[in-house]
Every structure is written in C-alpha cells, then in structure tokens.
Design a protein around this nucleic acid. Structure first.
Lengths: 211, 211
DNA sequence: CTAAAGTTGTGAAATCTTGCACAGCGTGAT
DNA sequence: ATCACGCTGTGCAAGATTTCACAACTTTAG
C-alpha cells in the first residue's frame, strides 16, 4: 500500500503546519488523541476539510477515537520535513531581519537559521543575535558550505530582486520574501512573499466593509 | 451608471494593493499609461485577471491605450481607502513590533500608526521610534480618542487571543495578526493572520519538492 | 477609406477548493 | 450479543477563482 504521492495543494501544506504546531501543544499537555473537529477550529475550517488534509499523511485516524497525537505529529513531520533539519539563511540584518532572527531562533527542531548576510560593513563580520553575519559576497560559498536550501529575504524593496537573483544563482530551492516586491523568475525556485503592506491595506479595506 | 458594488474577493483586494504600489512607482517615473499585461507580471497572473480585478474600480481602461496611471491610482484609492487616512494601533513593542513600526512608518498617505501599546512598564510611557507607547490598559480609551479602526497585533503567541479579545471589545474593525495563533471570534471583526512560521515551513516543504 | 494590429470588457469553460452526506467501523451501554 | 452513537474516509456536488476566447473599440498605416 504505497502512498499515492499526488501533489498536495499549498493550502493544505499551510494547514498541516498549523495543525502540527497545535498538536505539539497538545503533546506537551499530555493529550493523546484529537478529533478532526478540534483541529478544524484552528483554521476556521470544517472537520471534513481537516480529514481531507490528513489523507495524504497516511490515514491513521481511528473511528470514534480520532487521531493519535504522537503518531500524527510524526507523520506530518515525515511529509513536511522529511526528517531532515533544514539549514536556513537570512539575508538582510536590518530591523526586520533581526526581529525575524529573534522570532525564529529558539527551539525549532525542524529548521535552523545558520547564517546571516548583509552588505553593510557595519554588520558583516560580527555576530548578531548569536549568528555569524557574512557579507553578501559570500552567499554562494556559505550556502554550499552549510548546505542551505531555503533563504529568508528581508532586504529593502529596491534590493529584493537583485538579491533574489543572486540567491537563485546559488542553487537555492526556496525563498521566503518579506520585501514588498513580487519576485519573478523563470527557474523552479519556490518563492513565497509575505507582503506586509498588502496585508495591512487589505485589513484596512475590510475594516470599513464589515458593518 | 452607479457602481454595482458587488462584494469583491479578498484576493482581488490584495492584488489591487499591489497594483497600486507599482502604479505609484510608474507615476514617479512619469509614465502615463499602462497595459494589463504589464500589471499582470506583478502578481504572476494573466492580463485577463488584471482586467477582471480592475472591473470593480470602474472601467477606465481604454482600448489599445491601456489604463491611465493617475486615474487608476485615484480610483483604486477610492475603493481601498475611501479617501480617508486611517489611524492604526500597534500592539506589542517587542522586536517584531518595533521592526514593523520602522517598516511601516514613513511616507504613507493612506494610513498612519498613531499609537503603540505594551504591557511592559519598561516600555509604556516612553516614546519608541517616534511614537508614544501606552499601557495596554489604555487601549479602549486611546482607540476611541484616536478613532482607530485597525490594529496590528505583534504580541507573543500566548498573549494573542486575550489581547485580541480586548481589541474586539473596544469596537475595532480589523486586526492584522502576526502571532502564530489563529484567532477565532464570533464578531464580524476582520482578522488577517500573517503566520511567519507557517510560511517558512511551507517554503521548506517546497524547497524539496521543486526538482 | 479600409485594413491590420493590439487592447479592453466579459460570457463561458476550466480548474481548484471546500462542504455535504453517507457508508463503514470501533466503542460503550444495555 | 446487539444496538446506538460518534467518528473517519471519501464520492460527489457546490462554490470560488482563474483562464480562455472573442466581440467591440482605438489607433496607425497604407
């Protein structure tokens, strides 16, 4: 009974990440089992959606007892992390970059920011928040050295595209972009943009629409 | 010829925000007209999608000459901002909060972060990045005083739900949440969550899938 | 004046995503 | 041992979003 391995939608992947985070909380609390209707509240979804999301991770749900927390965490990890701790690079050690570093450092067991990059001589060469900061020029070299596959881009908008180009050139596989700039590429690199001003303008718009 | 005013999808609102940002750049460059296929590149979309997005803002496109940049900016502003400068509150003056403050301050002509809140006595009472920081206890009072309708929530995950409750109680209309925690509410408040770890885990997942 | 090229606005098809509804199963009560 | 209950897995329908494709229009060239 091999897993079908049909492609899983981005939205499902996102929700799996959210489910897992919550499952780990449950694990700490010592809860052993969980129902789809409990998980569904985490994402404002329906129980059916949760069950569907969980299908590709292997049907380990049990009728009338729900899902086993420990097992589910393991299975989601298998899918999301491949049991591999990923090395991440953070490009840009400005305000946002340093905040992200603080935010994402700590006890993550599936990824780790291992290197920082900036083009400001004031910053590179130093250790910031416990991580070594390198000059942008060393990107290719260090990304190979640390076997980094994913980068977080926290540079000013003007620099985003050029920096992304460099990153893509190093053979990186995914970029999480915080610059308010859509990055286009012909390569297969996965690029996810978290556009803060876009999100804020959207919130502002709906602040007026919601009666 | 009144505007139909049918509800516009969230995704369209997001893209309108992106279009506008780019249009403003074009405006600075002195470009007067723009085609749908130029805008479509900004969001990895198709020209047809852009034209559809622009329908609710009033069909000011002109065959074979495209859209008038200045007019389009104006019309999008009418829809997105209602020609009103919105006052925003930022809750949480930690690393992320301060970074967001720096990032969002500056010359925005449609919104302005007018007040900061934190529950740490080290922080409230002071001026941080040019903005006065108040104690969380003063939320309701100040939100009324400044006529704030939208809040940015940048508090730790554990505090997110309780703080959101307070915010909703003050009659705020929209929340942009950065805490890694989905916020559920029975009210009509619009809540948009920018979940950084979710986005990162998604990027990590696709870093392995994209050949 | 006519034709060609290029663009908008939009009905209709296609695709993607979600929700419904029910068969099937394990559990606990009687 | 049987039955009622509640949950999972999933076919199918409904809904949302995107893309296609083409009529209508404007400009430019001949």
């Amino acid at each position: 009974m091999t897993r079908p391995q049909q492609t899983i939608s981005e939205k499902t992947i996102e929700r799996l990440s959210v489910y897992r985070r919550y499952l780990k909380e449950l694990q700490k609390q010592g809860k052993e089992r969980v129902y789809s209707h409990e998980l569904s509240k985490l994402v404002s979804g329906t129980p059916a959606q949760v069950r569907r999301d969980l299908m590709p991770v292997g049907g380990n749900g049990c009728s009338s007892k729900g899902y086993e927390v420990n097992l589910l965490i393991e299975e989601i990890a298998k899918l999301l992390d491949c049991n591999d701790k990923q090395n991440i690079a953070l490009i840009g050690a400005g305000n946002l970059g340093r905040a992200l570093l603080g935010y994402l450092s700590g006890s993550r067991d599936n990824y780790d920011i291992v290197a920082l990059f900036d083009n400001d001589p004031e910053k590179y060469g130093r250790v910031i928040c416990g991580k070594r900061c390198y000059c942008i020029d060393q990107l290719a070299e260090k990304i190979k050295e640390y076997k980094i596959t994913t980068a977080i881009l926290a540079v000013p908008g003007e620099a985003a595209e050029a920096t992304a180009e460099i990153l893509i050139g190093t053979g990186i596989k995914a970029i999480l972009n915080f610059a308010p700039k859509h990055i286009t590429t012909s390569s297969t690199v996965f690029i996810e943009t978290l556009d803060i001003t876009k999100a804020l303008e959207k919130a502002i718009y709906f602040s007026r629409k919601n009666t």
